[in-house]
């Protein structure tokens, strides 16, 4: 089944530092924009919700046109946002947790400036592998 999934990491300054289309549905350019727009809009909801709960995984916070936004907020208020069509919550949770571990590894890199764009291809490969595994 072709699925849509768009994964974005947003820094605490609301700047996207990593983006990946991890779905298996064929890419369409206008859709890619639309995904980003939905994710960008969902930040508003996340902003309120993040302080209303003490879990990191906020589950699905927003939706538009059959697409759901699930969010995971790290302690540093970096947000992992996944736009997806309906899928198991457990898989998404595991995905987020593993990506969090990867993110921490990136964070530990002394050459990485927190809040800057993640350009590591290794990270990218791993994230895509995780997406294949869990999503």
């Amino acid at each position: 089944m072709a699925s849509t999934a768009c994964f974005v990491i947003v820094s605490k300054n609301d700047i996207p530092i990593y983006e990946a289309e991890v779905g298996s549905a064929p890419k369409r350019e206008d859709q890619a924009y639309q995904h980003q727009f939905i994710l960008h809009a969902a930040l508003d909801v996340v902003q309120d919700l993040a302080w209303a709960t003490n879990t990191m995984f906020l589950k699905s916070v927003d939706r538009f046109d059959d697409l759901v936004v699930s969010v995971y907020v790290t302690a540093g208020h970096t947000r992992f946002m996944l736009l997806h069509d309906s899928r198991s919550e457990d898989g998404i949770k595991s995905f987020f947790q593993e990506v969090h571990e990867l993110y921490i590894k990136i964070f530990l890199n002394p050459l990485y400036l927190p809040g800057s764009r993640i350009t590591s291809s290794h990270f990218d490969t791993k994230v895509r592998a995780l997406a294949r595994k869990y999503l």
Partner: peptide
């Protein structure tokens, strides 16, 4: 959404 202060949401729907 604009009234609520969700500016990004408002912008999304404005678009």
């Amino acid at each position: 959404f604009g009234t609520l202060g969700y500016k990004r949401k408002a912008a999304f729907f404005s678009r």
